[in-house]
Amino acid sequence: QNEKLANELKSLLDELNVNELATGSLNTYYKRTIKISGQKAMYALKSKDFKKMSEAKYQLQKIYNEIDEA
């Protein structure tokens, strides 16, 4: 289960640069939040902690959705 979550989180991290570029014309909230979420996700992957990875995955998905809707 950890392996599956780690792969999903890696996949979301692969999209980080594209989504970060998409924040160029948006409010600074999005820029700041996506950077923080990305850092948390990288830390969670290194720690291999299921709870941290779950939270990081949720945060990344949430900010990606917010950027898409903005």
Rank of each mutant, 00 (worst) to 15 (best):
residue 12 L to E: 01
residue 10 K to L: 10
residue 68 D to R: 15
residue 62 K to M: 07
residue 7 N to F: 12
residue 18 V to E: 13
residue 14 D to A: 12
residue 37 S to I: 15
residue 34 I to A: 02
residue 32 R to L: 12
residue 26 L to H: 04
residue 6 A to F: 13
residue 66 E to T: 04
residue 8 E to T: 04
residue 13 L to Y: 02
residue 20 E to V: 15
residue 35 K to G: 05
residue 34 I to D: 00
residue 9 L to N: 00
residue 62 K to Q: 10
residue 35 K to M: 09
residue 61 Q to R: 06
residue 48 K to G: 14
residue 59 Q to T: 06
residue 65 N to K: 14
residue 45 L to Y: 07
residue 49 D to R: 02
residue 5 L to S: 01
residue 48 K to I: 03
residue 27 N to L: 05
residue 23 T to Y: 04
residue 17 N to Y: 14
residue 11 S to K: 14
residue 29 Y to Q: 03
residue 7 N to M: 13
residue 63 I to Y: 01
residue 45 L to D: 01
residue 7 N to A: 14
residue 13 L to C: 04
residue 68 D to C: 15
residue 59 Q to S: 08
residue 2 N to I: 15
residue 25 S to W: 09
residue 52 K to N: 05
residue 46 K to W: 09
residue 26 L to S: 04
residue 46 K to S: 07
residue 22 A to V: 08
residue 36 I to M: 09
residue 29 Y to T: 03
residue 41 A to P: 02
residue 56 A to W: 03
residue 31 K to V: 06
residue 66 E to G: 03
residue 33 T to P: 02
residue 65 N to I: 08
residue 16 L to D: 01
residue 32 R to M: 14
residue 43 Y to R: 13
residue 12 L to T: 00
residue 69 E to H: 10
residue 22 A to Y: 07
residue 8 E to S: 04
residue 17 N to D: 11
residue 52 K to Y: 05
residue 12 L to C: 06
residue 24 G to R: 15
residue 17 N to S: 15
residue 3 E to W: 07
residue 48 K to D: 05
residue 35 K to S: 06
residue 20 E to K: 11
residue 6 A to M: 11
residue 29 Y to K: 05
residue 4 K to E: 10
residue 53 M to N: 03
residue 57 K to E: 02
residue 44 A to Q: 01
residue 44 A to G: 02
residue 21 L to V: 08
residue 11 S to T: 12
residue 25 S to E: 08
residue 32 R to E: 14
residue 53 M to D: 00
residue 17 N to C: 15
residue 64 Y to F: 11
residue 41 A to L: 02
residue 63 I to C: 04
residue 43 Y to H: 09
residue 64 Y to M: 11
residue 41 A to Y: 02
residue 55 E to L: 09
residue 22 A to N: 07
residue 28 T to E: 15
residue 32 R to G: 04
residue 40 K to D: 06
residue 61 Q to P: 00
residue 21 L to Q: 10
residue 64 Y to P: 00
residue 2 N to E: 14
residue 53 M to Y: 02
residue 44 A to H: 01
residue 24 G to Y: 11
residue 70 A to W: 09
residue 12 L to F: 02
residue 58 Y to E: 12
residue 70 A to V: 06
residue 34 I to W: 03
residue 8 E to C: 13
residue 39 Q to F: 09
residue 47 S to G: 04
residue 17 N to G: 12
residue 19 N to H: 15
residue 65 N to M: 13
residue 27 N to A: 12
residue 16 L to H: 02
residue 40 K to A: 11
residue 59 Q to Y: 13
residue 18 V to Q: 11
residue 60 L to G: 00
residue 2 N to K: 12
residue 19 N to R: 15
residue 11 S to A: 13
residue 12 L to V: 02
residue 2 N to W: 15
residue 63 I to V: 06
residue 35 K to L: 10
residue 50 F to W: 09
residue 1 Q to S: 11
residue 66 E to H: 04
residue 38 G to Q: 11
residue 1 Q to E: 14
residue 15 E to H: 11
residue 67 I to L: 04
residue 50 F to K: 05
residue 35 K to F: 09
residue 39 Q to G: 04
residue 35 K to Q: 09
residue 54 S to C: 13
residue 11 S to Y: 07
residue 4 K to H: 07
residue 53 M to W: 01
residue 38 G to W: 14
residue 33 T to R: 14
residue 39 Q to K: 09
residue 11 S to D: 10
residue 2 N to R: 12
residue 41 A to C: 04
residue 19 N to A: 10
residue 26 L to F: 04
residue 64 Y to L: 14
residue 40 K to L: 13
residue 65 N to L: 10
residue 7 N to H: 11
residue 43 Y to P: 01
residue 54 S to D: 05
residue 2 N to G: 08
residue 40 K to F: 15
residue 69 E to M: 13
residue 64 Y to N: 03
residue 54 S to Y: 09
residue 49 D to V: 03
residue 62 K to V: 04
residue 38 G to S: 12
residue 43 Y to A: 15
residue 39 Q to P: 01
residue 52 K to V: 05
residue 53 M to T: 00
residue 63 I to K: 01
residue 45 L to M: 04
residue 58 Y to W: 10
residue 65 N to P: 01
residue 47 S to V: 08
residue 5 L to A: 02
residue 52 K to T: 07
residue 68 D to Y: 15
residue 67 I to S: 02
residue 10 K to A: 08
residue 49 D to P: 02
residue 7 N to Q: 14
residue 51 K to H: 09
residue 61 Q to E: 10
residue 21 L to A: 10
residue 39 Q to E: 11
residue 15 E to A: 12
residue 10 K to E: 06
residue 70 A to P: 03
residue 4 K to Q: 11
residue 42 M to T: 05
